[in-house]
Amino acid sequence: MELSRIAVAGASGLIGGALARSLTADGHEVVRLVRREPRRPDEARWDPEGGYVDTARLAGCDAVVNLAGAPVGSRRWTEAYKARIRSSRVLGTTVLAEAVASLSDRPRVFVNGSAIGIYGETGDRPVDEDAPPAKGFLPELCVEWEGAAEPAREAGVRTVFTRTGLVVSREGGAWGRLFPLFQAGLGGRMGDGRQYWSYVSLHDEVAAIRHLIDTDGLSGPFNITAPRPLTNREITAAMGRVLRRPTLFTVPEPVLRTVLGELAGDVLGSQRVLPMRLLESGFTFAFPEIEEAIRAAK
């Protein structure tokens, strides 16, 4: 990849931060979109709720990457928080897509975050990008989220959607909370443990996004998950082996539903998602197996 100028929304988050660090380390210029007043030369102001983005700073960017959004797993899904989850994604995408479309010198590619939640519950049935969206809060949110990028696509900008799975990292997300529990010997399967978890290492998540930025001709949805999803029971056993800790505890389904509310469906639900389009595009995973991904995050 030639040295580029890339705008990143959500650079303070787990994936966006790792992406920005990776790009910067390789000599690319990263413009970080921030909601507050910029404090550094590499920051630019945007306000998703107010419909504002500093388009002057977007001009000349080779790519715009939108990974902004309120955390999905950080708290119970009250109606108010569900509204925040939705608006943080849909409004932000709309503002950025319209800003990209308005530029006379448009970027080559607009990469917009999404999630494998679009497929809903799949049980033990493997699904790829050809599977239709399911019904429910998360699937319908993902459909609206991706649809909000339409202005960029209509303006002729190559538009990509990263349907991300569960990211294996100590730094945040679901695994950021699992690591301390397992290291303390308190880890164990959730519910009956038969539900499939479609995971991806943080390294491979960032590498996949960069591959999608770099590879001309790639557009539309791409599942970013390791090639072989595993059950929660299998992942629990792998965590125990790598961290050398017992995994005797089990969190019963009723307890999870009491503690997490509607969010428990995301933990107990089964999603066996395959990254078919990513593999077909020539991408190679550095950490395709769960033990490799866990070790990479240690």
Rank of each mutant, 00 (worst) to 15 (best):
F249D: 09
L103C: 06
A97D: 09
S88R: 03
N232L: 02
M1I: 13
V109C: 06
A237M: 11
P151N: 12
G187F: 07
P48G: 02
R189M: 05
R21G: 11
S219Q: 13
P252Y: 13
R35H: 12
A20I: 01
I235D: 11
L279P: 04
A149Y: 02
R76Q: 05
P132N: 08
M239V: 05
Y199D: 03
I290E: 06
A7M: 01
D130H: 15
D62T: 14
G265A: 14
G193W: 00
G92N: 09
V267T: 10
A297P: 00
D130Y: 14
I224G: 06
R57K: 11
R45G: 09
S4D: 14
P288Q: 07
F179K: 02
L186P: 05
A134M: 04
L278C: 10
L141R: 04
A238F: 02
R89L: 12
G92T: 06
R153S: 14
P229F: 01
S87E: 12
A56K: 15
G16K: 07
A68M: 11
K298I: 15
R106K: 13
R158C: 09
V255A: 15
H203I: 14
G73Y: 07
T122G: 05
V160H: 01
Y199W: 13
G193N: 01
G176S: 10
G120Y: 08
V31F: 08
A174S: 14
V273S: 06
G27C: 01
C61D: 00
G69A: 09
K298W: 15
R86Y: 14
E144S: 09
C61L: 06
F287E: 14
V168K: 06
D42Q: 13
G176R: 03
S104C: 14
A20E: 04
A44P: 03
L103A: 00
R21C: 08
L178I: 08
N232M: 00
G193R: 00
D42V: 11
D266Q: 15
E205S: 10
E150C: 12
R153N: 12
I6Q: 08
E253R: 13
R194A: 11
D204S: 06
M1Y: 12
V31W: 04
V242I: 10
G188D: 10
E154I: 14
R106N: 03
R295N: 08
G60H: 02
G282P: 02
E289L: 12
S201W: 07
S104N: 15
N112H: 12
A184M: 08
G60C: 02
L138E: 12
V100P: 02
G269N: 00
P132S: 08
A56I: 15
R108Y: 10
Y81V: 03
R170D: 09
H211K: 00
G10D: 09
K298P: 14
G220T: 04
G173Q: 05
P288R: 06
S270L: 00
S102R: 10
